[in-house]
């Protein structure tokens, strides 16, 4: 069934798209990037990072572009001063939550968090850093989990459960004490459910999940491979 074409306005510009797409997709089709971290092509969106919030006018609440479907005649604002300020605060908050020491991180230069901070002009953080004492899981042969860099985007959780079907990862606890865990919060190597496929590593936007043996700046994620795999799987289903 051919999808119905509709038009919406994004930051004043008339954009033609099809029904069923999200605002994020429609904007990208039109060459406009809305910042996001928890979104990854091929995975179900969860609307958790709140970076892609857009203003749909009418004084209503802001809506996440990744989970809000387009509607005929919609007027979307993606870059008002308020939205930009909020996005910067979100990045500031993420930077203080864990120990993001870019200079010694394997993902330095290839990190989505670092890149967004740079793109949005976050040059300092006004909130005090938490400096939590977090472990590094080196138990596995090929991969590393560094909790210090995790932003709880749950891309790994979703890719593992939905694409690989293993559901090794989940999040324990709640609030600021939420942590990524494998199986019963045990060393990754002892998690029997893991297939060693590495999709989680390639999906991770930061240096939290990385290949072992990579030095600073060496970890480049092949996110597109995972996206392809996810889309292949979806096509089969």
């Amino acid at each position: 069934m051919p999808q119905k074409r509709i038009s919406i306005r994004i930051d004043g510009e008339l954009v033609s798209t099809v029904e069923g797409k999200t605002i994020l997709e429609a904007a990208r089709d039109a060459g406009r990037r809305i910042p996001s971290l928890c979104h990854m092509d091929g995975l179900t969106d969860v609307g958790a990072c709140r970076l892609c919030l857009v203003d749909l006018g009418g004084g209503g609440r802001l809506a996440p572009a990744c989970t809000t479907p387009v509607q005929e005649g919609q007027a979307v604002i993606t870059n008002s001063p308020r939205l930009l300020a909020y996005r910067r605060v979100i990045l500031e908050l993420l930077l203080t939550e864990r120990n993001h020491i870019c200079s010694v991180c394997v993902a330095n230069g290839n990190c989505e968090l670092q890149a967004l901070a740079s793109a949005l002009g976050v040059t300092s953080v006004r909130f005090p850093y938490r400096y939590p004492n977090l472990p590094l899981d080196l138990s596995r042969d090929r991969f590393v989990l560094d909790q210090n860099r995790c932003i709880l985007c749950t891309r790994c959780v979703r890719v593992c459960a939905d694409v690989e079907g293993a559901h090794v990862w989940d999040v324990k606890g709640r609030g600021i004490y939420s942590r990524l865990i494998s199986d019963l919060d045990q060393p990754w190597a002892s998690a029997a459910s893991c297939t060693d496929c590495g999709k989680c590593v390639q999906s991770c936007p930061t240096g939290a999940l990385a290949e072992k043996g990579k030095a600073v700046e060496e970890m480049v994620k092949q996110t597109w491979q995972v996206t392809n795999a996810a889309e292949r799987k979806r096509a089969v289903l």
Binding site: V46, G47, A48, C49, R50, V89, I90, L93, L94, T96, E97, I151, L152, V171, G173, R174, G175, I176, Y177, S178
Partner: peptide, 10 residues
Amino acid sequence: SCGKCVPCRV
């Protein structure tokens, strides 16, 4: 806080 979204969690 459930910890899912950044503004509430952090």
